[in-house]
């Protein structure tokens, strides 16, 4: 090949390098400069006081993907009054959240279960003190497909029979749960083992956290469980109440009998605790040290003061009056020293 072209190639490459750098820089600056605004605030009810406009700073939050949307909704509403406070919410799971929280890397940790003793120890080792807040209620809902005409209520015993480790490979038809049910195949689906929902359900039903049959269709995405249960005659699954509410057209929620009669999951029964043992509290943990910062204090105060609006907007089951009062007094008494 000709060698005269070499000089041209080099120039071309230099030009290329320049062009690539220029494009990159342009892309980054354009993207950063563009649309600084958050989503426009429509219908802004209950704006925080005007002086909060002056607040700025960063609040880091991580933890449960179940509770994440609640803190996210709180952050969004709070941002309408304090747009300069930068709140980020991660969803690396309850355990992953505590891991970062107790390493001092986040201010707020969302959790779908209470903090474990070893996590407390990790926090203590780093000198991190925290306040536990109950911010909403969830009703783990046991569902079947719409075409399940035989079951309306299961006892805790029957649920255990369907889900306990001993059921693996053995309990495969509905009539094994109750002789009155037809011999339809039982197709179980539910959250995977990384989920706090799985931990809670196995603890409440099987009597031991993490103990479950393994031959079920597991997914960390509850929408997969929705599809699996809705698509199979004889499907049986469980997940948080919102996933049932969104899909009530294709799913049927079973009532649960814990010895005091059959109770259907609902906002009412979850709030008054009669939907037992599957109604559970959802938690937010606040690092006491962080509350010294005015933006964190303002956010936590706002969270507690508007909890019922936040829960409704994020489609959670709000606290009952008593729990709400407890939350507010807990926030008021956070020890910052």
């Amino acid at each position: 090949m000709t060698w005269e072209g070499r000089g041209n190639v080099t120039i071309g490459q230099r030009r290329l390098g320049l062009a690539a750098t220029a494009t990159l820089v342009a892309a980054l600056t354009a993207a950063c400069g563009g649309g600084s605004g958050a989503a426009p605030a429509a219908g802004d009810a209950s704006r925080p006081a005007a002086e909060s406009d002056r607040l700025s700073g960063e609040i880091k939050s991580d933890g449960s993907s179940t509770v994440g949307p609640l803190t996210t909704a709180a952050a969004e509403l709070f941002a309408e009054g304090s747009p300069r406070v930068r709140i980020s919410v991660g969803t690396s799971g309850t355990g992953g959240g505590f891991e970062k929280f107790c390493a001092g890397e986040t201010d707020i940790s969302n959790a779908s279960r209470p903090i474990k003793d070893e996590e407390k120890a990790a926090c203590a080792a780093k000198g991190i003190t925290f306040t536990e807040l109950i911010v909403a209620t969830d009703a783990l809902t046991v569902v079947t497909g719409k075409d399940n005409t035989w079951a309306t209520c299961l006892t805790v015993e029957q649920l255990k029979k369907a889900w306990e480790p001993a059921a693996e490979g053995k309990i495969t038809t509905w009539n094994q749960l109750d002789p009155k049910f037809p011999a339809e195949p039982l197709k179980v689906a539910g959250p995977g083992t990384d989920s706090g929902t799985f931990d809670y359900f196995t603890d409440a039903i099987n009597g031991e956290e993490g103990a479950s049959r393994k031959d079920y269709s597991a997914s960390e995405n509850d929408n997969d469980t929705v599809t699996a249960v809705a698509g199979a005659k004889g499907g049986l699954g469980y997940f948080g109440f919102t996933y049932f509410e969104e899909n009530s057209g294709k799913l049927k929620a079973l009532e649960v009998d814990s010895g005091k009669g059959c109770v259907a999951p609902s906002v009412q029964t979850a709030q008054d605790g009669s939907y037992a043992p599957l109604s559970r509290p959802l938690y937010v943990y606040i690092k006491n040290e962080s509350v010294k910062r005015p933006e964190v204090k303002a956010f936590v105060d706002y969270y507690a003061a508007n909890i019922s609006k936040i829960a409704t907007e994020a489609r959670f089951i709000p606290l009952n009056a008593e729990q709400e009062a407890t939350l507010k007094s807990a926030v008021d008494s956070i020890q910052t020293s």
Binding site: C32, E76, S88
Partner: peptide, 17 residues
């Protein structure tokens, strides 16, 4: 690495979430 699922602001520096 804790890349967050809700970040209502763009990164403006190397250490931003």
């Amino acid at each position: 690495l804790g890349a967050a699922t809700f970040v209502p602001f763009n990164p403006e520096g190397l250490f931003d979430r």
